[in-house]
Design a protein around this nucleic acid. Structure first.
Length: 326
RNA sequence: CCGCCCUUAGCUCAGACUGGUAGAGCAGCCGACUGUAGAUCGGCUUGCCCCCCGUUCAAAUCGGGGAGGGCGGACCA
């Protein structure tokens, strides 16, 4: 797999392809970033972008993980002390998950976002951006909370972060695309470059196959799930024997195989009772999908394999969390 | 600052006029059926009725105060 392929695999979109091709021509030392609001426990959504960061590292990129304490504060997520504490836990979990420590720079937002230059640039952005535009950028992230002034400052800071972290590629979920598009339009107004962006898909809800999986409502997979909890959650997942269910639904079990399992494992073994034909081995997502579609692989067997794979992926982080919490 | 409207289950809302400590749909949970889940049946759960004070034997309901949210306050009509 060449650099361009690895950079763009499993991406929902890149903006623009030409710009990414240029990065892929000489990826060594290029910088990519994702920003996260500090959270005590990583969930599967975090891991989806982390997988992309791992891809990028394998291509030679330096990765910057922004632990966005100021953003969390703007989102009313607690005191700075609490937020920084969870930021530290988040960093440890990312490392346990598989980000290369030597090639990952963890940056606390407050380490530069309170500087004068940053503040003045932020005000310039505020002058140049309409309320409607900022609110639209934030709509995907904010939910239906009452709009606060902090909510419109938030995406402007995200835009500015891309410049101040000196990154060549901004990575985020599709929920971040409006923020990134805002950055592409507004940063040049301040004399900065428009950032190149890469967006990961948003995985469908585990239980219903609808929309995006939510971390606050419904079921999500997280770094602290026990083996038994993983089995329970995966077993409860929506999983018709097809990759393309009726309507707008998706098959979340397949999606997780595609976006979480196969990128991290060369081979997936599906343990299957002899009565149903014995074990199966898959070297690619496509092969697994084809077997589910044909009926060769039963959803229940796919699920137990998925739970086992997730357990393996999460185990180091789960262990690290246990150590951190004493 | 002024005016009007809203606040009841996780969600959307009924109930308020004619006081008697609350309902529906959806969601959720459990079971049946499928070698998964869903669908489909069957069953079940859920509430500081925004807060405080007052009237009353009795307040979600009436009165007063407060909080939060929405909308409006040139001209024209």
């Amino acid at each position: 797999m060449d650099a361009y392929e690895r950079i763009t695999r499993n991406a929902a979109e890149v903006v623009t392809e030409e710009e990414v091709e240029t990065l892929a021509d000489d990826p060594d030392g290029k910088r990519a970033y994702v920003g996260y609001e500090p959270s005590g426990v990583l969930h599967i959504g975090h891991l989806l972008t982390a997988n992309k960061l791992i891809d990028l590292q394998q291509c030679g990129f330096e990765v910057v993980v922004l632990l966005a304490d100021v953003h969390a504060s703007l989102n009313d997520k607690g005191t700075f002390e609490e937020i920084r504490d969870t930021a530290e836990q988040m960093k440890e979990q990312f490392l346990a998950y598989g980000l290369e420590e030597a090639n990952t720079e963890f940056v606390l937002g407050s380490s530069y976002q309170l500087d004068e230059d940053y503040e003045l640039d932020l005000h310039s952005l505020q002058v140049g951006t309409t309320l409607k535009r900022a609110q639209r950028a934030m709509a995907e992230l904010q939910g239906d909370d009452t709009a606060k002034v902090s909510h419109v400052v938030y995406p402007l800071m995200q835009a500015l972060d891309i410049e101040y972290l000196d990154v060549d590629l901004a990575v985020g979920g599709m929920d971040q695309r409006k923020v990134h598009m805002l950055a592409r339009e507004e940063l040049p107004e301040l004399g900065y470059d428009a950032p190149t962006c890469l967006h990961t898909p948003i995985v469908g809800d585990l239980e219903t196959g609808e929309g995006k999986m939510s971390s606050s409502t419904g079921t999500t997979i997280s770094m602290e799930d026990s083996t038994a909890e993983l089995e329970e959650k995966v077993n409860a997942a929506f999983c018709p024997p097809t990759a393309d269910p009726e309507g707008d639904l998706v098959n979340p079990v397949l999606e997780i195989f595609r976006y979480h399992v196969f990128p991290r494992f060369d081979e997936v073994v599906v343990e299957r009772p002899d009565e149903y034909g014995g074990d199966l081995v898959y070297g690619s997502y496509d092969a697994l999908e084809a077997d589910l579609e044909s009926g060769e692989l039963h959803p229940a067997d796919a699920k137990s394999a998925l739970a086992a794979s997730l357990d393996e992926l999460i185990a180091p982080g789960r262990e690290r969390l246990r150590e951190l919490r004493g």
